Amino acid sequence: MEDARRRYLDLIRSDGVEFSATLAGAFAAVPREIFVPDGFHRRDGRRVVPADRDYLATVYSNDVLVTKMDGDVPVSSSSQPSLMAAMIEGLAVRPGMRVLEIGAGTGYNAALLATLGAQVTTVDVQPDVASRARSALARAGLPGVRVETADGYTGGPPERYDRIIVTVGVAGVSPLWLDRLDPGGRIVVPVEHAGTHPVLDVRPGLMSARVVCAAGFMSASGPLTARHPRSHPPAAVALDGLTETSPARWRPSLDARAYRDLWYAAGAWHPRSSHASIAGRESSYLAILDDTGEAGSVVLADGAILASGESAERYTAVGIALADRWWALGRPPMTAWRVGLALGGDPAAPIWAPSSWTLDPITPGG
């Protein structure tokens, strides 16, 4: 187990996450297997149970462990550890802080926060998920966590917190969360943007945010995922009939991180940016979708453009313009963006959703 956990920390770091020795100690100390006692589904859909030879190796991989399905749709999981590490680091939690977590999942993330000395209240709208998280935390011997069954929009019990962390994809920030925060508090939350859920560090007051990292999360339900004036279109399941309408423009191709940076910029600049699958390919891609949501253009990592539909020429031009604009600005990372928030969504249960984006100046050579 000692070797497995040492390798586990190396895997988290190899994903580009810089995290403190204290947080590394929490990852090394909290046994992740306690939180998936009945097994889980891997990202590829394969079921893994404790009797399998690769059970512990998979538990201590840098990957999401899906613990509940609704048909073919994952509805609860233990998130990718490197993503958890990045979000917890962004939270800047200190011993004694009161932390509200929206989305209990397996309880593992709350366990890490408690190991750092936080007093954690974690809420989940699914009673069975909350019950299993409560049991796992008890087995782990972590008394500093309270698990509540509650709608994430409400934030659960009306108490005060120093920090709020959200572990489910949302379209914006509930005003009720802001009511829970003490002065100087912050919210770390994955907010929908062009079909993905980049993590934002939201500072109340001016209602602005900075991007922490790229992410993809299961989406919440109810008013937390309501449409708003700057909502991007839903992802296209698969775009058929695509043909190359503009050749590759970059050699070598963008790596995964730079491609996500381009994707974020496209979402800031164009309201029809989203993501799409392509028949015969496993990955998802940056897409600019037409009004039907079934055609448009796709920007590949090498800058080539694929397009389909009656407006293929128009959407090819849009894809080229977005890619060239990002490149000309010095390939800004997503962390260079400042995000302004405005009230929108369901008038009966509004959310503070992204409404404007400002790019920090890029330092030459930076």
Rank of each mutant, 00 (worst) to 15 (best):
D15A: 15
L112S: 10
R272N: 14
S246A: 15
R325G: 13
L181W: 11
D70C: 07
L178S: 03
V199E: 08
R47L: 13
P233V: 10
A110V: 05
T121M: 08
L112F: 10
R163G: 01
S297R: 05
H232W: 12
R5K: 15
I12L: 06
A51Q: 14
R203Y: 01
M69S: 02
D52T: 00
P223I: 03
A26M: 09
R5H: 06
P350N: 08
M1K: 10
V145M: 10
P81Q: 09
A85C: 08
A328D: 15
E33C: 02
G96Q: 11
D360F: 01
P252Y: 14
R6V: 12
G25V: 11
V168E: 02
A323C: 12
V125N: 10
S79Y: 07
S82N: 07
K68W: 02
D15Y: 14
A214H: 13
P50M: 01
R257C: 06
D72H: 15
W357N: 04
R134G: 10
G184D: 14
S174K: 02
P234T: 05
G71E: 07
A236Y: 06
A226L: 01
Y8C: 03
S20Q: 10
L359G: 01
Y8F: 15
A226H: 00
L239F: 01
G184F: 12
D38Y: 12
P229K: 06
L176Y: 02
M69I: 03
T225D: 01
G205V: 00
F35Q: 06
V189F: 01
I187S: 04
E33T: 00
D70F: 12
A111L: 08
P364F: 13
Y264M: 13
A114G: 11
S61L: 03
S135H: 06
F40L: 08
R139S: 08
D162S: 02
S135D: 12
Y161R: 05
P183R: 04
E159F: 08
L239G: 06
D291C: 11
A215N: 12
S78I: 10
E101C: 05
D151H: 06
